[in-house]
Design a protein around this nucleic acid. Structure first.
Length: 431
DNA sequence: GATGCCTTAAACAACA
DNA sequence: TTGTTGTTTAAGGCAT
């Protein structure tokens, strides 16, 4: 057992799936870290009683987790959010009672978040409109979502900066031209490592995600989320979704995510971080968890230990992988076939099913406003071809989404028609 | 026991 | 000068 310095970047980068256990480990450590209890305000009596639960020997937390786990899922970006995908198999409706929220908030306020700093940073960045944040904003986001850090020693900020610097998942981008060093650089998520961050986040089975989840400012600003989709389907049609439907929706999510990645890839400028002596990104090494083809030429030009210039082919292969995941859903194929035979009216249903290419990314506006940071530092709009490709895929996405929605409508219509027909036939029989 | 991930702390430099 | 930001090194805990 040795310090990190004893590991070469090569070794760290080659570690397969090292981040998989991070989630459970974090949960484990969450209860074991002394500061998690120390930082708890004395007035939080309820939590004081829970502090005893922080002991590993106490399995109450596990009980809570398992009870609540079904209520949570990941958003389109893999970010934790309330998921309507609960209890897909059954008909039980989870109760998001106020007490549930309160408990989670108390937990998050007094316990250390079960997320690594990498994930916290990632979530903060991904929640930002520009998908890039200065360190200060990252601080704010974490503080806002995790009040624990308000009372925690200030060392966590150092850890955040440490992670930003060393973790390959994060890239520093210029705030203004010719200004590499200095205050207030923006940090964004490296698109190549984004899927791995998402995966790592998804592997966090801890339900406290709800504690910091804030619903979109405007009604579902991201209707493209398959969770939203399935939520709508379930709410509107009051039926239990089949797994294939959920899979299809998930596939749509993947497709959507890949498009966004593609856009990020198109738009990200050359990273400023030309060399990192050490890597903390091995846990999110895309080669570990993603069976994506890497561009050989790119691979030869790029030293993974130093930097990541992302080739188009890599993103394209991701898209292909996502596409294949969709096409592998036989039920969806059947749906497509069926839908194409019936009508294309379903495309109307896809109005709210935009990828972020259309909606979230507005490079003209600077949501940071007067923050002094240049708008969209990750933007490079010169590659028209790639954008066209993205648009093309986006169109396909909309089509597929419309088909899914249409399927739901057809399913419901058929169900109601069948029931109506049955009732009608019964009446006729009686006559 | 070796390895690797993660956290924390500290020091230092650059900059506003 | 002070505070912030970014980088780097070191150490230790924990899991596999």
């Amino acid at each position: 057992m040795g310090p990190v310095t004893g590991m070469t970047p090569d070794k760290k980068a080659e570690t397969p799936g090292a981040g998989k256990a991070a989630g459970l480990r974090q949960i484990y450590r969450m209860g074991s870290l002394p500061e998690a209890v120390d930082a708890a305000p004395p007035k939080a009596t309820l939590v004081d009683s829970e502090s005893a639960d922080d002991e590993l020997t106490n399995l109450n937390w596990l009980h809570e987790s398992t009870n609540l786990l079904t209520n949570f899922s990941l958003g389109s970006e893999g970010l934790p959010m309330v998921s309507p995908l609960y209890d897909i198999e059954g008909d039980n409706v989870p109760s998001f009672s106020p007490s549930c929220y309160q408990n989670m908030e108390k937990k998050s306020a007094t316990s250390k978040p079960p997320y690594s700093f990498s994930l916290l940073i990632y979530m903060a960045i991904e929640h930002s409109p520009n998908k890039s944040l200065p360190v200060k904003e990252i601080y704010s986001w974490i503080l806002e979502r995790f009040p624990y850090f308000a009372t925690a020693p200030t060392g966590w900020k150092n850890s955040v900066r440490h992670n930003l610097s060393l973790n390959k998942c994060f890239r520093k981008v210029e705030r203004s031209h010719g200004k590499v060093n200095g205050k207030g650089s923006l940090w964004c998520v490296d698109p190549e490592y984004k899927p791995n961050l998402v995966q790592a986040l998804k592997k966090q089975p801890f339900p406290s995600a709800l504690a910091f989840y804030t619903p979109p400012a405007s009604p579902p600003s991201r209707p493209s989320s398959p969770h939203y989709l399935t939520s709508v389907l379930k709410q509107n049609h009051g039926r239990s979704l089949k797994e294939s439907d959920i899979d299809a929706a998930t596939a749509m999510m993947l497709l959507n995510t890949s498009i966004e990645q593609g856009m990020l890839d198109c738009e990200n400028p050359q990273p400023l971080k030309t060399a990192k002596k050490r890597s903390y990104g091995s846990a999110f090494n895309p080669h570990n968890s993603m069976s994506l083809q890497e561009n050989d030429s790119a691979a030869t030009n790029i030293d993974p230990k130093k930097d990541h210039n992302y080739s188009v082919s890599s993103v394209a292969s991701q898209r292909c992988a996502s596409r294949s995941s969709v096409s592998s859903l036989s039920s969806v194929d059947e749906v497509y076939e069926f839908i194409s035979k019936t009508s294309h009216a379903g495309s109307d249903s896809s109005e709210g099913f935009h990828s972020e290419v259309d909606t979230d990314v507005d490079y003209e506006d600077d949501p940071l406003g007067d923050s002094g940071y240049a708008s969209q530092p990750c933007v490079n709009t010169s590659d028209r071809v790639l954008k066209e490709l993205c648009q093309e895929i986006d169109e396909e996405l909309k089509e597929a989404a419309g088909s899914l929605l249409h399927l739901a409508g057809i399913h419901t219509c058929l169900g109601s028609l069948i029931s109506t027909a049955k009732a009608h036939s019964k009446k006729q029989r009686k006559k």
